[in-house]
Amino acid sequence: MSPFDAYLHTILMEGGIEARRHGSATVEAQHLLLAIAAEEGTIPQRVLASAGLDHQAISAALDREFDHSLSTVGVSRASFDLPRPSGTPKRPPALGATAKLAVERGFASVSRKKDLRPANLLLGILRAEVGTVPRALALAGVDRTDLLTRVQNAIANDTIERNDATE
């Protein structure tokens, strides 16, 4: 298994745990983003942190997006006083449409599969121009274009280091 495959596997597994924690039947792009931010010591995690996006900040941004989107139709989570459901399904949630797109975009960002770096997955998530993730980032005041540049630079540096190491 290549380092990228191992990383992808970890993020998909951890993304599944995030999805279950959020009561989602499917793993979506935002769950992968949360998993990436939680994977300490990895390049994508460091890139996110350099833009002020740790796991907690992303989680807060997603909550804010949820509340904001509900408010546009006059709905507030605060008006529901039902207890939190207990227990989560043991079955791992399936990959949802937004997560599939993010993975596809990550793979499409290189011409050869062996050029894939962990940050390519983050690139795939951040390339989405519409949907929950870009909305949450915009509401949190994150400049997505600047973040994409940081990710691309990190991929370039990672590739140079990898090539130096193999020479």
Binding site: T72, V75, F80
Partner: peptide, 13 residues
Amino acid sequence: AAVVALRRLADQL
């Protein structure tokens, strides 16, 4: 986005 958020809220509910 409101559609997505309402579906999510309905699932939680």
